[in-house]
Computed example of a mutant assay.
Amino acid sequence: MNSAPPPQMARVEEQLAALLEEGGWSVDVEPVGPQRYRPDLVAGRGPHRYAVELKAEPEGRPDRALALLSQAILQASRYAADLGMRPLAVVGVGNASPSLRRRFVDFQRDYAPDVAVGLVSEAGGSLFIGPGLDGLDREEPKARRSGRVAQPRKASNLFSDLNQWMLKVLLAPELPERLLHAPRGEYFSGSDLAQAAGVSPMSASRFLRRMQEEGFVDDSGGPLRLVRRGELFRRWQSAAMRSSPELRMSYLIPAAGPRQLHKLASRLEACIGLFEAADMLGVGHVSGAVPHVYVRRLSPPRGVEWPGVVPCAPGEPPQVIIKQSNAPESLFRGAIRAGDVLVADVLQVWLDVSAHPSRGAEQEQLLREGALADVLGERP
């Protein structure tokens, strides 16, 4: 029972994704699983992971909004149980009156205290109840004197997880296959890009709209082409510098470090990154750096320990760092398979080493002047 037309659902989903991303959450708008049995979004930040079910009610009538909230709670709870996450039920409305906000608080407290809930309005207000969701509440903007409602802030994060993957797809024709795993072709529309990248048409349309607003894509009469690359890549680097949780580990058998590193990466859904990845791609420069292994979530599967490694003792330097990826879709979709392990693509290596505090600048400069010179526009 969702009375909202598809255009409003698309607007509400875009607004919710933008609000979460601005709050430091990673948002996956293409969750895995059959279409019928998957949430609308998956949102994660630190230890919190939510399966999000979204409904929309254009008028904001409390009876309809609460009925949709009930349905969203049931569906989010089912999806969350299947995925090992927490449920988050969200309803989007045109305007959220103080009375509706109070009724949402009362309903969650009385009937679903173990389920996180959210209320977002197209006017720009929001209310969230649940672990880790502090800071996402927004007061409902007051109507202007003309009687028109204040408009919400501009949309989504340009460098969200899937947006970074679509950037890689647009850049793939300029890179050899050994450095980036991605489709290679020319794209004339959002639907072309969506089909090639394996994302929804809405995600591709939203991405291209933001790119056009920022002046980073030229689509005048030909295939989509990235422009103003210096500014685009500077901002992409800045967005990628966001810290993420990590575990500092030691090898069980120190002398067998490289073999245990590959065992760790192959036995779990993991990807070798940074300097070790650069070496494996044949574009390395820095030697002796601590290897990094990226994972989607910083906890092994239930009942499984990290193979071949143990936590470092206090004060002991790490021999390998296991790091939770901030952009897992972009990382894992673009990764190169080397034997039985995944290796981060050259663009990912460039982004990640540029944020490394010690010798990252050396490796970043080598990539800028070498393998990525044409892509970054650095070739004289």
Rank of each mutant, 00 (worst) to 15 (best):
M1V: 08
N2Y: 11
R11I: 13
L16Y: 09
E22N: 12
G23Q: 06
G23W: 06
G24L: 05
E30D: 12
G33V: 00
G33M: 04
G46D: 15
H48L: 07
A51R: 00
L54K: 07
E57H: 14
E59V: 09
E59G: 14
G60S: 08
P62I: 14
L69R: 09
L69K: 03
L69W: 06
A72H: 00
I73W: 07
I73H: 03
Y79G: 00
A80Q: 03
D82A: 10
L83V: 00
G84Q: 03
R86V: 01
A89E: 02
A89L: 02
G94P: 07
A96E: 08
S97C: 06
L100W: 11
L100S: 08
L100T: 12
R101Y: 05
R102T: 06
R103H: 09
F104G: 06
D106R: 15
F107Y: 13
D110C: 04
Y111W: 12
A112V: 01
P113Y: 02
E122Y: 07
G124W: 06
F128I: 01
F128E: 03
F128Y: 08
P131Y: 05
L133V: 01
D137R: 08
D137E: 04
S146H: 08
A150T: 00
S156V: 10
N157F: 11
D161Y: 06
L162W: 02
M166T: 00
V169P: 12
V169N: 08
L171I: 14
L171M: 14
A172N: 10
E174D: 15
E174R: 15
R178Q: 15
H181M: 12
P183I: 02
R184I: 05
G185F: 11
E186P: 05
L193R: 00
A196R: 01
A196E: 01
G198S: 06
S205K: 01
R206H: 12
F207A: 06
Q212F: 15
G215R: 08
D219L: 14
D219V: 13
G221K: 05
P223M: 00
V227C: 10
V227N: 12
R228K: 11
R229H: 08
G230H: 10
S238N: 12
A239Q: 03
A239K: 02
A240F: 02
M241P: 03
R242Q: 11
S243K: 14
P245T: 08
L247Q: 01
R248C: 00
M249K: 07
P254M: 03
P258Y: 04
Q260W: 09
L261G: 03
L261Q: 02
E269H: 15
I272S: 06
A277T: 05
L281G: 07
H285P: 04
P291H: 13
V295A: 04
P300Y: 05
P300Q: 03
V304M: 15
E305K: 10
A313Y: 07
A313T: 09
P314V: 11
G315L: 04
S325K: 00
G334P: 06
D340T: 14
L342Y: 15
V343Y: 12
D345A: 12
L347S: 02
Q348L: 00
L351M: 10
D352H: 05
D352I: 04
S354C: 07
H356M: 04
A361W: 14
Q363A: 07
L366F: 08
G370N: 13
A371M: 09
L372T: 10
L372K: 09
A373V: 13
A373Q: 15
A373M: 13
L376G: 01
E378A: 15
